[in-house]
Design a binder for these strands. Sequence first.
DNA 1: GTCTATACCATGATAGAC
DNA 2: GTCTATCATGGTATAGAC
Lengths: 202, 202
Amino acid sequence: MTRQVVAIMREEILGRAVPLFAKVGFEGVSMRDIATTVGVTPAALYHHFPDKDQLYLAAVEHAFEGKVGPFKSILDGTGSPWERLEAFIAKFARVLDEENDFRRLMQWVMLDSNEERLQRLAHCVFGNLFNALRNVAGELVPTGSTHLLAVSTVGLIIYHFETKAVRRFLPGYEQRREDPAVIAKHVVGLLRNGLESSGPAT
Amino acid sequence: MTRQVVAIMREEILGRAVPLFAKVGFEGVSMRDIATTVGVTPAALYHHFPDKDQLYLAAVEHAFEGKVGPFKSILDGTGSPWERLEAFIAKFARVLDEENDFRRLMQWVMLDSNEERLQRLAHCVFGNLFNALRNVAGELVPTGSTHLLAVSTVGLIIYHFETKAVRRFLPGYEQRREDPAVIAKHVVGLLRNGLESSGPAT
DNA sequence: GTCTATACCATGATAGAC
DNA sequence: GTCTATCATGGTATAGAC
């Protein structure tokens, strides 16, 4: 029963830390910041996590918890490979649009210079999902490199959201084209038939 | 002539600062770090730049100097739109592969929470190149959104390099598929005909 | 399990000698 | 134009009372 209370406080800390790390990254957040946001003193945090590094790692994994499963279900699910891929793209675009913290944390992770953290997150967080996507790619293009195809697919979707903050200041930016459904449709068209048939964006 | 000496020291500082910022980002680098690398004291840096923010901004712009021009030349150059696009993709992949600092700085910029910096860099650094790419996209797909198409094209290429550090720990990673020429060929195939004709990766 | 208090160090930035 | 010296602030982390 004490165990539950401890676990709850742990969750509370992580829940508050995630948006902070998402916004300004590991180096940009201080233990004081997190403590203040949670409503405790910095010393209290050290009762739940040995140091800032471990807290960050736990926060990232917390942010990814439950996120990967649904995507994997879609990719491993029923229907033709194209149907599954399209469903994945639509949902992925929606999640990226709605959950900025999740997306930004992914970006911070990619820039992490710490090999240990990188490896751990690759295995714990990305591994399963990436494999499911590779499987679908393999069904669609038996002769291609599933690794290459999976990366291209994800990059094609995610880059629209990674660059959104900058693109607001670039020419041709239009609010209505930032709808995740529009982006998903565009991406599917491109994957199906290439550029020239990606046609008019709705 | 004193002007020249000053300018040289400025360049020297920026040249040394770029790799530092590229590796650990704005928050990860201290003025002491930069000073040590340059071989002066921190106080000396403040003779050339008013504060850390301005030094960072100058470093980023320094890293992008000369980079944008050649890409723009290719895109604005002669030949069919497809030829120009392919040449751009090939060169872009090569540069991303060779110049890690350049690529990582782009990634840090995308995560910047500072609206001012973001806007300035968008205009000074990305604006021209992005427009040139949009023009080519417009020639290829007169009915499509050039903004969407340009973002997709860049994302399709760049994501292979952004994720490289993580992908090393993911299944299906193969050294020989990390060759920028292989990636460029893969991307061109995808843009030309979509997934199913992206065929076997060389 | 959280607090107060604090040790100890790194940070950005400046003043003033040379 | 660079140095030495220094300041105020804020960083991680710990000790020990409650």
